[in-house]
Design a protein around this nucleic acid. Structure first.
Lengths: 140, 140
DNA sequence: GCACTTTTGAGAATAAGTCTCATTATCTGA
DNA sequence: TCAGATAATGAGACTTATTCTCAAAAGTGC
């Protein structure tokens, strides 16, 4: 079962009715490798209203089906959350491109921090900023 | 030498002229323990224009005298950066309180990622979200 | 198909951050 | 110490991201 199907099923279980616009948002998120901003989604789905995009993202976030990523700058990114796949992001400060990375050592370090802190840590965000390969070349 | 003095000296060395508004922003940041948003600063400094607040924060960030913290939600936070002290943040999703933490293992993991990626990593942001001790208690 | 809800889109409203530009202040060199 | 050059500043218009409102359209159970 792919993510879109899974997400729609969860929405149904959570008592939401099925609507065409919400499904379009889910399918777009399903087809995308990394994070999209709400306005990108709005732009790519001509027939879907802005309010619906934000509403749907909230609902999906509430069900832990998508994750909000604070990529810095103006807008937040949203990407689907596959239960078995956890990654973080490199953001190019030049062109804005996002690319994912995984690091076991990083996860362990975060787990250790959360274990020894007073906080009940529920989620974490790691964003590395810099210049991507193609932008570095362009400037060279 | 305290941070305000140090920051003003750096600004001077960087070729900025000394102006009263910029100094007020620096002094407010110096007096504050953790991050402030730009609009909080603007509100607290009656006589300083919004544009000046943002400009000053940019300049200070460029000189690595303050750090922008993506605390999630609407506005970004800014806090002074003491050169010998590098930390990250735990954000309470309930009351919004920020508290700092340091982790050597985390820094090493990030360095390793940046070494093996195509990105020239210039900065990084780690934010752990959860519930702080006092909010956990309150809900218990 | 009907009654009852929920979902939806359009666009107004709000909020954060950026930009412009005329005015004021700082600096530099005689 | 003053004049000229240039940087710093504040006011407010502007842009962009996000939220809100509400009436119309669609889904659901019968």
């Amino acid at each position: 079962m792919d993510w879109a199907e899974h997400a729609l099923q969860r929405l149904d279980e959570a008592g939401f009715r099925s609507g065409g616009s919400r499904r379009q948002v889910v399918e777009l998120l399903a087809s995308e490798g990394c994070a999209l901003t709400a306005l990108e989604i709005d732009k790519r789905l001509e027939s879907v209203g802005r309010a619906t995009v934000y509403r749907t993202l909230d609902q999906l976030e509430g069900l832990h089906l998508v994750q909000r990523v604070e990529i810095g700058g103006d807008a937040a990114g949203y990407e689907r959350l596959d239960s078995d796949e956890h990654h973080h992001h490199l953001v190019c400060e030049d062109c804005g491109r996002l690319s994912p990375f995984v690091s076991e050592a990083l996860e362990k370090a975060i787990a250790a921090v959360s274990r020894r802190s007073e906080f009940a840590v529920a989620a974490h965000d790691v964003v590395l900023r810099g210049t991507c390969a193609s932008c570095s070349e362009r400037h060279a």
